[in-house]
């Protein structure tokens, strides 16, 4: 048994233990912390499986922004934890256990029954990379071969932000999301919030730019930019924007809007909806990705900031 195999077994055992513990532990807050660590470790596994694109997304969403979203929810639910000590009945718990076991068994069966070798379109995606001028096959699939799916995903992000905003009370509609954070301007938090964002913004733009030829892309870059923005907000250096502000709304629709415009132009002048002329494919894709990065950063930041809580009058 080679040392690589030992490492893989240890990694898998650690992740499985953490996963089971996250489900079993009774306190919501501890489970959330376990989930964040789980996301970090799963990113390692994705790198080990040579799926660096997925690893980047897992590190940004699973270990980062998703964890913070859950931390906020757990902090709000903390008081509810104490009230919810009425345990469900035996029948309900047995039913839930049976359903979980059945789901796990079906999933395991499906995985075991997969044809070997698995049917794949990966060689076709690599062979047709010349059509866009980008050499990262994941970006090619996301932005060109299956561009329709990606565009609809961005519309889903927009729907999600509308859903969050619709939770605002009438008095705060159009106001600023979340509390106004305050921190000692000479403290360590304000210092970190001044030190880290310049580095983070450069890395975010780099991840977007490198996405055309290497693992990376708009979503991962946008997630990093969003976290830097939220860091400045949490340190009290910046305030959340008014959600009724015209420029905020414009940035939120810029990505999907530009995507749709390019798609319609393909319908009018080209072969089909979202078909890029080969000579312009790379600049068009990069343009869409830049607009999408801004939209994703703003959307993720505002999703984490929550529903508007403070009215337009300070």
């Amino acid at each position: 048994m080679s040392i690589e195999t030992v490492i893989e077994i240890v990694l898998a055992a650690v992740v499985l233990t953490l996963g089971v513990w996250t489900i079993v532990v009774p306190e919501t807050f501890s489970a959330t912390v376990g989930f964040v660590a789980y996301g970090l470790l799963v990113a390692l596994i994705w790198v080990r499986l040579d799926a660096a694109d997925v690893a980047l997304t897992e590190a940004a969403i699973g270990g980062g922004l998703g964890g913070v979203l859950l931390l906020g929810a757990a902090a709000r639910l903390r008081d509810a934890d104490m009230m919810a000590d009425a345990r469900p009945g035996k029948l309900l718990r047995a039913g839930a256990a049976a359903l979980s076991v059945l789901t796990a068994a079906v999933l395991a069966g499906v995985v075991l029954l997969l044809p070997d070798p698995a049917p794949t379109l990966a060689p076709a995606a690599v062979a047709n990379a010349w059509a866009t001028g980008l050499s990262n096959p994941v970006t090619n699939v996301l932005m060109a071969f299956r561009a329709m799916d990606t565009m609809l995903e961005k519309v889903v992000l927009l729907l999600a932000i509308i859903g969050v905003w619709s939770l605002a009370p009438d008095s705060a509609w159009g106001g600023r999301p979340g509390p106004r954070h305050q921190a000692d301007p000479r403290g360590v938090l304000a210092f970190l919030a001044r030190l880290l964002p310049p580095v983070g913004i450069v890395i975010g733009i780099y991840i977007l730019w490198t996405g055309s030829d290497h693992p990376g892309g708009a979503f991962q870059g946008g997630a990093i930019l969003a976290s830097m923005w939220l860091l400045a907000i949490m340190a009290g250096l910046a305030d959340t924007p008014l959600v009724s502000h015209r420029s905020v709304r414009f940035i939120l629709v810029a990505g999907p809007g530009l995507f749709l415009l390019v798609g319609l132009a393909g319908l009018l002048f080209g072969a089909a909806f979202l078909s890029y002329p080969p000579a312009l494919a790379k600049p068009l894709i990069l343009g869409i990705e830049i607009a999408m990065t801004l939209t994703i950063a703003a959307t993720l930041g505002l999703l984490l900031a929550g529903a508007p809580e403070r009215s337009t009058e300070p």
Partner: peptide
């Protein structure tokens, strides 16, 4: 590309700990 993943992890792990201090420890933030 593992280096890029490490960069992302470094930025977001810091961010998570800040969020924990702001959201988790301070009762008023909730």
């Amino acid at each position: 590309a593992a280096i890029d993943v490490a960069l992302t992890l470094a930025l977001l792990a810091t961010f998570t700990s800040i969020a924990f201090v702001k959201k988790g420890l301070s009762r008023f933030a909730a």
